[in-house]
Amino acid sequence: MALENTQPVALDAGNDSKLAGHFKRNRFAYTFSAIIIAVGAALRIYLDTMGFTVGTDYYSDEFQKYWMPVLYGELIILGSFTIGLSTYLWMTRETDASSISKELELSRYWKLLSIFTVMAVWAGCIASNAVESDAAWHQVTIRDTDFTPTHIIIFYFALPALTAMLIPAFIWTHTRIPAFMNKISLPFLAVVCGILMIMPNYGFNEWGHTFFYAEELFAAPIHWGFVFLGWSLFFLIPLAMQIIGQMARLIAETTTEDLGQSA
């Protein structure tokens, strides 16, 4: 694997036209972004059509028929995706960092950025679609159980899906990129843990809503646990700085030859 020709990817040295080169380089990001946007759009259409029609009463047969299978499906898909991909990435990890050429290493950074792009696109989908759909829902509808249609989408799919991508990405980075191998990037870990902890925080949220907080005020302190965990995104900046530092070095080193010629 370490021997493959990585020059075109890493250094953008192919012979394609500008546009074709762009799509070729970023095909991972485009393909997977398109897939997740499609998934997001499908869920959105499902929510729009089935939300208020069959989603307002957990105890109705319709709810059990049209919403609970969605929930179970989501949990099964996300669980198996995370565990399966993480296991695969770990089993196929690189054991010898020194066998990785600089070009390959650089191309992996570009791949890492592609992975982050896909996650970022999903983050945008969550922000524009999912977050306030839950606000809108709760402020016009009486909460019956923890499994309202908007919860089934945001709490049990949208946010966990981000974790489901972050965990394999974390493992991939720490098993494929020499600068991250045999150690752990603190900011990356913080981002993963923060987003992951949002799921256990549902427990507090739902417990509180049944026990001491009956209103549907979105800005209520009971929701601030999510806010605090969202702060884990602050760690994207130090993580970006780690990546910037490493990529700058690699780009400088891999383009040195050029530099020598032009000087």
Partner: peptide
């Protein structure tokens, strides 16, 4: 709507 016509849905009170 066709599927549900005639059904009585509750809206939170049953919980």
């Amino acid at each position: 709507l066709v599927i549900l016509a005639g059904d009585a849905l509750a809206h939170g009170e049953r919980a």
